[in-house]
Deep mutational scan, measured.
Amino acid sequence: DRIFMTRTEALEFLLKAHQTAVDKIGHPSHKQTPADHAAIEALDRLLLDVRARRVDQFQINASAAQIIVTD
């Protein structure tokens, strides 16, 4: 599946995904793992790359739809 978004929409989408990941590892019942921190770092890099126009398409994980940034 493909989803087309403007750059602004894609950045909002990534910010929400980032916040969800941060909230998940901050929850008291969740045991933090290196994979959790790696996922947040990957989202940080992706946010910067989309914002800087170095990336025009991405996929958060293998089961997610491919996001295509349109400007």
Rank of each mutant, 00 (worst) to 15 (best):
D1A: 04
D1H: 10
D1Q: 10
I3D: 02
I3A: 04
I3F: 05
F4P: 03
M5H: 01
T6E: 02
T6L: 04
T6M: 03
R7A: 04
R7M: 11
T8V: 15
T8C: 06
E9W: 02
E9R: 04
E9P: 00
A10M: 01
A10E: 00
A10P: 00
L11S: 02
L11E: 04
L11N: 02
L11M: 11
E12I: 08
E12G: 10
F13W: 11
F13Q: 03
F13Y: 09
F13G: 01
F13D: 01
L15G: 09
L15A: 11
L15S: 11
L15T: 13
L15Y: 10
L15Q: 12
K16M: 11
A17P: 00
H18Y: 13
H18P: 00
H18L: 13
H18T: 05
Q19G: 04
Q19L: 07
Q19I: 15
T20I: 13
T20G: 08
A21W: 09
A21G: 02
A21V: 05
A21H: 11
A21S: 03
A21R: 04
V22M: 14
V22I: 05
D23V: 08
D23Q: 10
D23I: 07
D23H: 10
D23R: 10
D23S: 05
K24Q: 08
K24D: 05
K24G: 05
K24I: 11
I25D: 02
I25S: 06
I25H: 06
I25P: 02
I25K: 04
G26F: 15
G26Q: 12
G26Y: 15
G26C: 12
H27N: 14
P28L: 05
S29R: 02
S29C: 05
H30G: 06
H30A: 02
H30S: 04
K31D: 13
K31E: 15
K31I: 15
Q32E: 15
Q32V: 15
Q32T: 15
T33C: 09
T33I: 03
T33W: 08
T33F: 06
P34Y: 08
P34A: 15
P34H: 09
A35T: 05
A35G: 09
D36V: 05
D36P: 02
H37I: 15
H37N: 10
H37R: 13
H37W: 15
A38F: 09
A38E: 13
A38K: 10
A38V: 11
A39V: 13
A39P: 03
I40H: 03
I40R: 03
I40Y: 04
I40S: 02
I40V: 10
E41K: 13
E41Q: 12
A42R: 13
A42I: 12
L43G: 00
L43I: 12
D44C: 06
D44Q: 15
D44K: 15
R45A: 09
R45C: 04
R45K: 14
L46E: 00
L46F: 03
L46D: 00
L46A: 01
L48Q: 14
D49H: 04
D49P: 00
D49E: 12
V50M: 04
R51M: 13
R51T: 11
R51S: 15
A52V: 08
A52I: 06
A52E: 15
A52R: 10
R53L: 12
R53P: 01
R53C: 09
R53M: 14
R54N: 09
V55K: 08
V55G: 01
D56N: 14
D56A: 09
D56Q: 11
Q57D: 04
F58W: 01
F58H: 00
Q59S: 10
Q59I: 10
Q59F: 11
I60P: 01
I60Q: 02
I60E: 02
I60D: 04
N61W: 05
N61T: 12
N61D: 10
A62Q: 11
S63A: 11
S63R: 07
S63N: 12
S63E: 12
S63I: 12
S63T: 09
S63M: 12
A64G: 14
A64Y: 10
A64F: 12
A65Q: 11
A65M: 13
A65D: 07
Q66M: 15
Q66R: 11
I67A: 01
I67M: 03
I67Q: 01
I68P: 00
I68T: 09
V69L: 08
V69R: 01
T70K: 11
T70S: 11
D71Q: 09
D71S: 09
